[in-house]
Design a protein around this nucleic acid. Structure first.
Ligand SMILES: [Mn+2]
Ligand SMILES: [Mn+2]
Ligand SMILES: [Mn+2]
Ligand SMILES: [Mn+2]
Lengths: 217, 217
DNA sequence: GATTATTTTTAGATTTGTCTAAATTAATAG
DNA sequence: CTATTAATTTAGACAAATCTAAAAATAATC
């Protein structure tokens, strides 16, 4: 059994592992909104508990045990996000903060029943995959919209940025999950993208395009 | 904003206030599973924050601010219990522990939406009243089954004991919320009660009868 | 390869909530 | 009204998680 705080560290290390191996102290500190010294202390504790593998001055990687724990927290986070959107009519930009709290509720029965109640969803409101109770993810085949060429078509199946301003912006443009888009032109000058969305033309910045995930077809 | 721990103290003081005024240190210690010395420390802190009124060696009472905070936690606890039973098919003896955790989730939007999703329930799965968002309770007119006389009739509308063994026992006997019962005889020797429940005769101990709440009619 | 600059770790302190043991106050009994 | 008992509070310590400031290790630069 881990504390609320330990769980947050494990989750952050898990997410950062997708970017760098091993994960650096400063990177964790920034994500968790704390100081490097505090991170070092906590890393030692997690290392004691064999949840992470730690080499001084090098960084940390999750052990198998640590990884499973982290994935379970991610599972809970994403299931709660689905609950908030599907059942309580939250918008996709309103769910993250609340899920940050709900993900730490302990009961296994609760989470399995919730999964069932939600009809075993495979992705959360941002298109992120929801692992099953054994920690297995369904394979996802995303491409960043910014990587598409003229004439490429596909559906929006995810976003890689979860901030409320970004999500509200997409909402306003009509670029929500499931929508079909076609790339008309990638402007050479600034990398912005001309899109066709349901017959309508639309220009989005490269910055926005980088955070929209497309399944081509 | 109060910590998880402070919220638990306030809730316990609130419940104990129904029994004694002011609430004693030892009573709190027993409920919260801690030592009297720890309670004294916390009481001082809550007193600093003007959540309780404290007189050394006498005990504590909630201030208006403390009472409202406590009632809000009770509201959240009971709404989550309804959610678990009505939506996730938990049994009435399985919900309390999980609700002890869920009651500390912060979002107001969450709890108002949950209330709406559950269709504004007035009582929780144990028949306890759910206060509205302003802290107002609907009036309840319970009588302990153990106080009824021969020939009295009514419906089970609550229980005053929430332990799993007790609730499972009632479940097995068929004495669940809403059921109609009639007192056939109160046995003088041991105070046990002969009941009529849906044409069937049934004998329950005085101890059990004391924790069943009846609305006479 | 020596010299900076950056990153990370240690040392020592702080806050929150808890504990044990001792001291104090209040309640009860003779 | 004094003696004993029970309840409560204080004193001092501890674990968890954090911080600042200083030291140490690593990386980058000349
Ligand atoms: Mn999220
Ligand atoms: Mn998400
Ligand atoms: Mn309960
Ligand atoms: Mn209840």
């Amino acid at each position: 059994m881990q504390s609320y705080t330990e769980e947050n560290y494990l989750k952050v290390i898990y997410h950062l592992s997708e970017i760098s191996h091993p994960v650096q102290t400063n990177a964790i500190a920034e994500r968790i909104q704390t100081k490097a010294a505090s991170v070092t202390d906590m890393i030692k504790k997690l290392s004691e508990k064999e949840l992470v593998h730690y080499v001084k001055y090098q960084g940390v990687t999750l052990t198998e045990k640590g990884k499973l724990t982290a994935i379970n927290i991610v599972r809970k986070h994403r299931l709660w996000e689905v609950f908030l959107v599907d059942k309580l009519n939250f918008k996709w930009d309103e769910v993250h903060e609340v899920a940050e709290e709900l993900e730490h509720i302990q009961s296994n029965l609760l989470i399995e029943r919730l999964d069932e109640f939600l009809d075993f969803p495979k992705v959360d409101p941002h298109g992120d995959p929801i692992p099953d109770k054994h920690g297995n993810f369904a394979e996802m085949t995303f491409v960043k919209l910014s990587k598409l060429k003229n004439g490429d078509k596909g559906n929006i199946t995810g976003v890689s940025e979860h901030s409320s301003p970004f999500l509200k912006h997409l909402e306003k443009l009509g670029l929500t999950l499931g929508k079909r888009v076609e790339v008309v032109d990638v402007v050479e000058f600034d990398g912005s993208v001309e899109l066709l969305l349901e017959q309508e033309k639309l220009n989005i910045s490269r910055e926005v395009a980088k955070h929209i995930l497309i399944t081509k077809n």
